[in-house]
């Protein structure tokens, strides 16, 4: 086991990366969609490295047997020679710390096993409540026209920035549809919330929309809300925050495969 430690760690890490990026879309809980090709490539490279390490170790071990056996026939003698070379590369790497796995590398088993066995859930209301909801840093101005569609699907982030900063009032009179999870405010208000991520879940910040005219579902339920925008406060001011949607219907939905929105 100790001899194959490095190989096992590489296979484990590579397998974990492939499990979340190639065989499922779980990686979206942790990083952005754009990272997928890099994750798949690194997963494959790690698995190949691990496999090569296993083969090298085996051939190294056999090579020594062959070397001891150099009294044998011609074919064997050749094998022994080959093995001797491998043995060399091993004694080289052996002089570089024990085997291939430095002790600290065993820490890699923590995230690898977590991803393989119990992939941690996407961040939800707990993180949203902790991060003060942040408004996109931008000034008041006109926005490009909204595409056609009735109802029109919008991201929580897009809805928020148009509601607060759009001097053209492009949201007015449109029927809109937002998807997010439910969070509750102190004063009985409830929100459709989405975490905005630019790189990985570590930099998540919350965007939220207050929902009126509908009963609040349980916290962390994923819902799709259809409704119309309720203007409030002066454009770009604190009073305009958070934006408000008057709901016509609230429907429970399954958690989308990408639980975050790109910032």
């Amino acid at each position: 086991m100790r001899r194959y430690g490095g190989a096992v760690l590489l296979l484990l890490t590579g397998g974990a990366v492939l499990r979340i990026s190639l065989f499922s879309e779980l990686y979206l809980r942790y990083v952005q969609a754009g990272l997928r090709p890099y994750l798949v490539v690194s997963g494959v490279v790690l698995v190949v490295l691990g496999a090569v390490a296993v083969v090298a170790q085996r051939r190294g071990a056999e090579g020594h047997d062959g070397h001891d056996d150099d009294g044998g026939d011609d074919g064997h003698g050749h094998d022994g020679d080959d093995g001797h070379n491998h043995g060399h590369s091993h004694s080289h790497s052996h002089s570089h710390g024990h085997g291939y796995g430095p002790p600290v590398a065993w820490l890699l088993t923590l995230p690898a096993l977590a991803l393989l066995l119990f992939p941690p859930p996407a961040l939800g209301s707990y993180s949203a409540d902790r991060e003060a909801a942040q408004r996109a840093a931008q000034g008041v101005g006109t926005f490009p026209a909204l595409p056609a569609g009735d109802p029109l699907e919008l991201t929580v982030g897009e809805f928020g920035s148009r509601a607060i900063f759009d001097s053209g009032r492009s949201l007015k009179g449109r029927t809109l549809r937002l998807t997010g999870f439910v969070t509750h405010g102190d004063d009985g208000a409830w929100y459709v919330t989405r975490l905005l991520v630019s790189c990985c879940a570590a930099d998540a910040s919350a965007g939220k929309v207050e929902i009126r005219d509908a009963d609040a579902p349980v916290t962390d339920t994923w819902v799709t809300v259809t409704g119309t925008w309720v203007p409030k406060g002066e454009l770009g001011s604190d009073a305009a925050w958070p934006p408000v949607l008057a709901a016509e219907s609230v429907k429970k939905v399954a958690e989308p495969s990408n639980p975050y929105e790109k910032r």
């Binding site: 690194s42 995230p111 859930p121 996407a122």
Partner: peptide
């Protein structure tokens, strides 16, 4: 704790490539 695991895994996954 769940959020810790998620952030922890996210940083590792992000860093591996």
């Amino acid at each position: 704790v769940a959020a810790w695991w998620t952030v922890f895994t996210a940083i590792v996954v992000q860093g591996v490539p």
